[in-house]
Design a protein around this nucleic acid. Structure first.
Lengths: 238, 238
DNA sequence: GTTTTTGCTGATCAGATGATCAACAAGGAA
DNA sequence: TTCCTTGTTGATCATCTGATCAGCAAAAAC
């Protein structure tokens, strides 16, 4: 007996579409966006042809998966709560990061990473919002507290990356990780703030010291040059 | 004129194999391990058939790419230098992480991530070595210094993740990042150590509080259950 | 029960992809 | 020049994959 589910009864279109998207999120998270429509259909217990009654193309289905996974993940109230100065900054940060860590589910983190590798602009938009809505306010609030020096944005990214990395180790590299993320997040936030007590100047790189975003393809269509490409080019020149 | 290189002259077998692997590292880093042999050959300026004179299968070529990228990346002298107590621990950590950050090249980080998503055991082996050869000693050395409390392994992973995350933002999400990693790494290491000065107890989760490594497939061949799969299972039961 | 609607399936097509092989031709040996 | 070795190629095969469509059958309408 295989894991597939055979009897696909007649279903309400809305329910069927919902079921397909849910199965697609699960399937694509595991095998990547290059997974086949046949495998997906088998897991969902339907025929491959049925997918095309609900989605015009595989791309459209993938788009629905993106919507399902990423839409509304950044809660607007996070930014508000981060700015609520009636609460100590330590409590605000702890509360936020404990909450934020919960979005790093198996499906979210893997699909997000696959989308990033595939060059989806979606990731850049999301990360941009993290900067403006979360890390920016966070920096201001920490500085406004008075006891801490203002962290450089890169330092906030490092804190952020530490939390994300826990999800990467767990769901991408499939390594053993703590059963409960809470204490880990708490320790990291507390240590981060404690590290800001020493008043050394924050080394925030200014804009001209930033390397621009890499592009998947240069404007002229040329690709990133690796060693081999460079050598081939040189060879073509003689 | 396209970017491909037409005249592929007769080459010494060793040189040709080298050229193919180099081109494959570049190509697979960009498009993923699902890239086609035809595209790869076009970029390398050779015919697709020629690949199969040097590699029995695409899998074997991918294996060669793994070897090229990951073999010997963890320098043995890192562990030695980390343990050299004639040098202040701050200097040792700074030197190590400045050096370590250089391995996060475009090719390395992308192929490593793709391999991880694909469930390669390679990643787990590598991460295991990071634990035993780098983070373990690091923890001991920090504690041995006397001025700092011993960091929990999860705290060291957070520091580590912060550095890795810089590479992820740059090469996977293709976001703007600092031109020079040095100051960023230095700030993070310094803040990490400063954060260990406050003597609060380290919350190291003990083994029974760790969730085991996730498996791509359960022993019985069953897959990870997402919402859709669970629902389908329930439906099959009536 | 009969008719109508429509959710669903099996068959099928065109293009892509990994892999194979006979034949060609570049470069050295005679 | 002539011969021989072998690096390289174009053609080709079997399979896989996204996508289409006529027709079946389950549920609703009558």
């Amino acid at each position: 007996m295989d894991g597939s589910v055979r009897p696909a009864r007649r279903l309400d279109p809305e329910a069927r579409r919902e079921q397909i998207v849910a199965a697609a999120v699960c399937y694509f998270a595991e095998v990547g966006l290059g997974g086949t429509t046949r495998d997906l259909a088998r897991r969902a217990g339907i025929t491959q042809a049925l997918l095309y009654r609900y989605f015009a193309s595989k791309d459209e289905l993938v788009e629905a998966v993106y919507q399902r996974i990423f839409l509304g993940r950044l809660k607007p109230h996070w930014a508000n709560e981060l700015r609520d100065r009636s609460v100590p900054i330590e409590s605000r940060m702890l509360r936020f990061y404990r909450d934020y860590a919960t979005i790093f589910t198996y499906e979210w983190i893997r699909i997000f990473m696959w989308a990033g590798l595939a060059g989806q602009k979606l990731n850049q938009r999301y990360m941009g919002r993290v900067t403006t809505q979360l890390l920016g306010p966070l920096r201001e609030e920490i500085a406004a507290d008075g006891r801490y020096r203002a962290p450089a944005m890169e330092e906030l990214w490092a804190l952020h990356g530490g939390v994300v990395y826990l999800g990467i180790r767990r769901h991408i590299y499939r390594l053993p990780t703590p059963e409960d993320d809470g204490p880990v997040v708490e320790a990291n936030v507390a240590r981060f703030l404690a590290g800001l007590l020493s008043k050394k100047t924050p080394p925030d790189p200014i804009r001209r010291d930033m390397r621009p975003a890499e592009r998947a393809e240069a404007p002229n269509g040329a690709r990133r040059k690796c060693g081999a490409a460079k050598r081939a080019e040189a060879r073509a020149g003689d």
